[in-house]
Amino acid sequence: MRPDILNHGYRPGTKLMFAMIRLFSGQPLPDAAKLTFYRSDFYGNPAKEFTHEALRGPSDWSVGDRELMAAYVAKLNQSAFCIGAHTATASLAYQDGPRVTAILDDPESASIDEPLRATLRLLAKLIRDGRVDADDVREVLAAGVSPQQVKDALAVCAAFNTTSRLADAFGFELLSPKGYEAGAKYLLKRGYR
């Protein structure tokens, strides 16, 4: 359920931009994007900057890996909108939708590199328990993940734990498969800024 300000509280110029995007793309602007335009100085602008750094900034994880982590965090949080959006984006980045689906269904049995599997395991524990300890991180490091990659994965987790909770709190409308596909193309081309 979302406050009415997130339906109708935008400035006239912003409403016009939403209409133009719908007209030219054939798809409505997703609620995740709309949210960042509401009083953008409060949340949207700094949130987009952080999300872009986490998902598109320099990292030894590929963009596909980080989008997969985002989808996995969304799945752990049972956030349908974010699962759809980032499953589509990871699938497009990897050019392998069935693999992404298999990993999200069960990363322990899926065909996946051990460093990524160990990292997803760490994120799962962090989301479910609210904490991890040094032994949990040592297991990830032992799997071949660098300390910097652990930091990068934690940044992705922080960004998408926030987004997935806001998606459900504010009732983001689910998209059609075409809508998710269009969003994925945009996110891979332009990122989150």
Partner: peptide, 18 residues
């Protein structure tokens, strides 16, 4: 939401540092 995420982020970074 940001506060919850920040606690997760900091917990992970603290575990890594240790």
């Amino acid at each position: 939401a940001v506060g919850h995420s920040t606690r997760l982020y900091e917990a992970g970074l603290a575990a890594l540092a240790e």
